[in-house]
Design a protein around this nucleic acid. Sequence first.
DNA 1: GTTTTACTTGACTGATGAGTATAGGGTTGT
DNA 2: ACAACCCTATACTCATCAGTCAAGTAAAAC
Lengths: 209, 209
Amino acid sequence: MKAGHETTRRGRPRDPERVRRVLEAAAQQFTQLGFDRTSVESVALASGVSKMTVYSYFPSKEALFDACIEDRCSGLFDLFLNAELDPRDPHAALLRVATLFLALMRDDEVLAMHRMMYGSGGVHPEVCRAFWDQGPQHCIDHLASYLAATDAAGTLRIPDFHRAADQFLSMFLGGSHIHCLLGLGKPDPAEDIRMLKANLELFLRAYAA
Amino acid sequence: MKAGHETTRRGRPRDPERVRRVLEAAAQQFTQLGFDRTSVESVALASGVSKMTVYSYFPSKEALFDACIEDRCSGLFDLFLNAELDPRDPHAALLRVATLFLALMRDDEVLAMHRMMYGSGGVHPEVCRAFWDQGPQHCIDHLASYLAATDAAGTLRIPDFHRAADQFLSMFLGGSHIHCLLGLGKPDPAEDIRMLKANLELFLRAYAA
DNA sequence: GTTTTACTTGACTGATGAGTATAGGGTTGT
DNA sequence: ACAACCCTATACTCATCAGTCAAGTAAAAC
């Protein structure tokens, strides 16, 4: 009944490393050039594989694109999501959250991914949904649950965890982030640190216990 | 010496309404489909003009694209930038700023413009620069100058006007805005109003005089 | 009317790229 | 050995599209 036979099939098995190389090369080109400007041919070339092999892995360019995003999204936000945060020391914890999140938002690969997802707005709804769930949504939820812990510990007084988390993170998505997304260059790191401290201070002042 | 002769030239004059129609149709298709998926042919067809005429107005597809953005950007943020704000009543003024800005960020045309600009990130640097200058940058500057007035009037206490303006506006660029950009739908207006009030409150609490 | 410029039509070139066909070589289980 | 499957290489079809050419029509200045 199950389609995936666990039993070894006859014939030469599929080489998983080849699939990886294709996925890797495709992700790189898609994020750099966008969907339309990337050709299946060049992906095949870059991954040292023939075009027909790509089509044997994925039925179409669209399917390849979808697989790429799915593959990339999973690991992209892990660093941020795995941070350990102490509810008794919100200053240190939020400083850490802010630092990690800002680093994430300045990362070239992350920026390229955002550009691509925004650019292919209404065209690939399922992919956008997956990105949203595994990316922004997940980050907000993660921070919200930490804020709930601080509220419980009495170190901060927060009426709406989810909203507060969104507010905190969104303060790093202002002018400087837009400037980066537009490809006009990143701000000087010292300026980023000043922004980080200002945002942290604003948030803590407003939500102090 | 001047290229633009004011004196009437010989021969049939160029019809300015035709240029408008081309620009209009092109902007619509570019914002809806993106640069690559838009063809000069279809723009010509949609504007009731022949392809050759388009090429007589603009030397290339790129030039047409650039002209579109330039044309659209100018008027897009006007509603926001022309608001009159009273420095003695920051609550009312910021409520108005927030309302206008949020409406702007929920507007389909504005969203489409953002999507397109982000999508064509490194490809058209000059256009991105123009968008940045006339759009986000201008909005931040506008609000910053108002905040300076409130600080001078003693109604708010703000150490860095520009940063505070960026913080305020960026709070409307969080999860809900990303959700819109990804084409996953806009939030319920009631929820938008709740967010608006929460952001306003947060900001005023942190920067109270 | 003549010239000059704007505009149209339609066909054309040249390039790019998605997806297919085919035939052959490689690697595995039976 | 043989069948079944993976992979490759090359060549192909078919469609789209940027940009051009040529020959003619429309409207304005002179």
